[in-house]
Nucleic acid binder design. Structure first.
Lengths: 197, 197
DNA sequence: AGCTAGTGCGTACACTTGTACGTAGCTTAG
DNA sequence: CTAAGCTACGTACAAGTGTACGCACTAGCT
């Protein structure tokens, strides 16, 4: 039973997209109803209509990033067979073709930052992180996965703090190699598995 | 030639301290003239008198953190002789006695976060980071120092995102060991130096 | 055609923010 | 003792914020 005028069906989605754009460009503090409305080309009244509370809008928008991260980072990891493959994927995700742009890193940083204080955002962060950790954990022991996650975020953070200086690929690669080849707990001697084609 | 009533000589310093407290507790967005004034127990007029602009106050406050970080992190590193010593210092700085509290990590995170968009804050960040990198660089090759810095920040970030879960010491230690023992560029074979007592 | 329910949005309000500015009061020079 | 100058602060203002609320207008039912 539909009533009223549904004259712009994609409006809700466009607002969500505009929200992410604004956060990417100006940070969470720039995410005001009015600013987002201007960016999306919708009147202020539409904002509060589709999203009665600003926090709700932001949470919804952040949540959509989960589906963005999955294919870019987790998918290639799922296909990695050897430890060397894993290193390749990680290097690529840090500075290569599948690596996020500075704007995307900024967005991810906003989530982490906000998540440190807002429990709702922390849940989103947890979900994003779980997606990648679970995938890493499929190939590597738990402790190694943690360290790699920490280092990956460290590299991304480095890129944020030094936007004009490119990271040296060999430096990044060797660091990941060192972590990936850590011995698993309970197996003091590291066995390199050789199940590639 | 002194005039007027200098009835509270430490007032300026107390304002700076209160500023850091407020940022630690509520983030940069909580750092308002009025909030800080209330926390420091001074009237609003005093704030704008000692610090005519809010950004100036924040920058001054952040800058004082530089002298806090130096002795805690750089000093022990200066005294490290062997690579194992370096690992000890790093593990300690991550989760041990000399490691920052969650509040201090939060403060550092604010600096990094703000620094990604505000050039003035970026300068402060740069200075803080240089202090530690220069010290690391004294013992380790440049690329390794970069990786270690990234990982250290990654671990701190992890603590922020998981305040209730303690990091396993062995996990942290092995990760740092792996990085510290990376071969120097130009020296394909790694030589472990054994100059301990 | 007329009635009704629900969609979409314009406007207004209460509040918080940084900052400018006027002024009170102490301290020294004359 | 008086005048002046500087310190310290109370107050006011303009700008920007989230959100509540009421009005138009469309679409389906009778």
């Amino acid at each position: 039973m539909r009533r009223g005028k549904p004259n712009d069906p994609g409006r809700r989605a466009r607002i969500l997209q505009a929200t992410l754009d604004v956060i990417r460009a100006g940070g969470m503090e720039a995410a005001s109803y009015r600013g987002i409305a201007a960016h999306a080309g919708v009147p202020l009244g539409s904002m509060t209509y589709y999203f009665p509370t600003l926090e709700g809008l932001i949470l919804s928008a952040l949540d959509t990033t989960r589906s963005d991260l999955e294919p870019r980072y987790a998918d290639p990891l799922r296909e990695a067979q050897t430890r060397d493959d894993v290193v390749d994927v990680l290097v690529d995700a840090t500075i290569g073709a599948t690596s996020p742009t500075l704007d995307d890193i900024r967005l991810y940083a906003e989530i982490r930052h906000y998540g440190a204080r807002n429990p709702k955002v922390a849940d989103v962060l947890q979900a994003v992180e779980d997606d990648s950790l679970v995938t890493l954990h499929r190939v590597l022991p738990n402790s190694t996965a943690l360290a790699i996650n920490a280092l990956l975020w460290g590299w991304w953070s480095h890129r944020l703090a030094h936007p004009d200086t490119a990271l040296d690929e060999l430096t990044v690669r060797q660091a990941f190699e060192a972590l990936v080849n850590l011995p698993a707990p309970g197996h003091p001697f590291h066995e390199k598995e050789q199940n590639n084609a």
